[in-house]
Design a protein around this nucleic acid. Structure first.
Lengths: 201, 201, 201, 201
DNA sequence: AATGAATGAGGTTTCATTCAT
DNA sequence: TATGAATGAAACCTCATTCAT
């Protein structure tokens, strides 16, 4: 294909540039150069700089949703599904630093400015976790008193913070596998020692 | 100090402005106006805009570290200490939205630009969690196979994500107490139903 | 070039503005307005304010070098060549006050800041004088004990100071021709009366 | 003396700072620090930044005038007097780079802004040269057709340009003595070889 | 007379966006 | 569709000057 899918080319370029420089420090001309396109061309496909960020975010998260959905379709045990989610997320973040960065940026910065924008794909993604939890509760595998709306935040937050640290190039002492196992364990078993109970209980 | 504590006034103003607009959209003149000070005055106390952000962050986190330390000093049971940490953090974030925002901003945006800056107070803060976990492991209250370095990230990340959502003005369906209890439970007991074990075991 | 030669337009505008206000008091917006161009446009053609000054200087001196070279090519007698140089320089300075000013500014102010910049065209220009002197020495028309490296400075300095005074609007009592003749005489014959010798000789 | 002569201290400090940084790049606080005085104190002795420059200039040139006058008072032969002027000027410029710099700055930059300021001491200084020439003409030692008003400019300009180059740290190949002798020779004898005449004459 | 904290106007430069080609 | 030269608003930061102490 000669020069088709300019849209995709720009999205890919923007992902790279945003990840490297952050949204505010990225220039439209950086993206244009990376996409081998004229500056003005970008405005044929996007309304403004924010629009690019949102598109990048939605697209990348969308791909993640698809992959995750496919992967989880093969599994029925909610415990296993949670493990898969955790492992897959961490694996992707490790593999695709740009995506990890863009999530960081999008989630913490943009909302301030475009509060009216609702990250639809992102909601979908996080809701995969709550649906796993609900399924587990229905099957009596997970505790009924867990609030899926809170648990999904806790789990995503934990994973995201770990990815953030990875991107800082600090503490790369643990492998993805080790980390995924730890996190899965923490959320499945908690951190109490066997036989130990919560105090006062 | 001539009239009052200008440094403090600027810090407080900056916290408010950064929280409201985000770092990049905050103008120095906004901060100056909020602090009722001339633009130039700010540069008598800070080197540049980044310096303000870092100072705000360090100061706010520093206060949090102090409060948390005091609070935890009264308790000896690691389980209880974890509960206290979680509850206190969420309480503070709910009470002080600005602080929550500034943490978000500082942690996700700045690092890209000043990677060489190490958030010392922040490390201190997160390490409170790992020290609680270590203490629990020594006392056989927490599982020995938990890696404190990962657990601290997971716990902080979970709390931070929850605070983020609160700040978006969405889903304020749960109280701080409920949420704190949920999160404490998730990390202490995990989400497995009583009697359930991890698969493959 | 879209509409016209923007680069040239800016150079010409800058020459005028620098001459009128001096480098430090000239604002970019002054130049932009004079060139009928947007402020930002200037930065499409020059890196910064200094770059403009240097370009102006090099360009103007370059033109002078070319004209001078052409003019001198027609003459073979070093005495005449010196006379031509002096006359032409003074004529140009009188005609083009801006150029004279820019030389003043460039030579005395900028060097302090960008000592690493070597005025190549300017060196070329001044070296025209020394080459005339050398030629004269080879032909036994000029004294052999004259050091061309010093004489060129003396001659250029003399001309430049005279141009400086003209630009102050003081003492315009003498015409270019009178002045050129005087200066030529001074440098050719010296100021000793016929028959007079240096003392102690 | 404890803290007397603040005026003098500031002048000396300013000379140093202007020489090092140039007028526009020198900050009042630099001068204050160099003079070990508070910023505000400077305004008790000078009206503004320009006022300092002018004072520095007048003072330094004034000293030069005094020294030169004293030196010349001992000599009666105009040829010798010219030689003394040239040698003394170059010696001072070599010895006191700051002075040389300040002359450069003052003469080329300031005039643009304060055209109404007439450098009285400076005029006095340059007029020493013309008075030497007039004296020589009266005594039939210098040619009568020399215009002293032009010759003084030529001589001062030549010396100033040479000093400028010295301050650039380039070409320090010749000593003050060699240079002074060359310049004296050039102006006394001209550059024509013995027996040679101007063309067309 | 001396201080130095505070002021605030002002300039260079950047960069998202436009639009004539 | 595509280009990229041109725009011009906007922001950080500097620094001469003031003035309360």
């Amino acid at each position: 294909m000669k020069s088709v899918d300019k849209h995709g080319k720009i999205i890919r370029a923007a992902t790279k540039v945003f990840a490297k420089k952050g949204f505010f420090n990225a220039r439209i001309s950086d993206i244009a150069k990376e996409a081998k396109v004229a500056d003005g061309t970008i405005y044929l496909y996007f309304n403004n700089k924010f629009d690019i960020l949102i598109s990048v975010f939605e697209q990348e998260i969308g791909r993640l949703v698809d992959q995750m959905t496919t992967l989880l379709a093969k599994e029925d045990d909610p415990r296993r599904m949670l493990e898969i989610f955790i492992t897959k997320h961490l694996t992707e973040m490790k593999k695709n630093r740009n995506l990890a960065e863009v999530i960081q940026i999008e989630l913490r910065q943009t909302n301030k400015l475009i509060r009216d924008y609702r990250n639809n794909k992102f909601s979908e993604y996080v809701n995969i976790v709550s649906s796993i939890i609900k399924k587990g509760q229905e099957e009596n595998v997970f505790r009924k008193d867990i609030l899926p709306g809170i648990a999904k935040r806790a789990i995503f937050g934990a994973l995201d913070e770990i990815a953030r640290i990875w991107n800082l190039n600090l503490e790369t002492e643990y492998t993805v596998e080790e980390t995924a196992k730890q996190v899965t364990d923490i959320f499945q078993l908690g951190i109490l020692a066997p036989g130990e109970k919560k105090p006062e209980g």
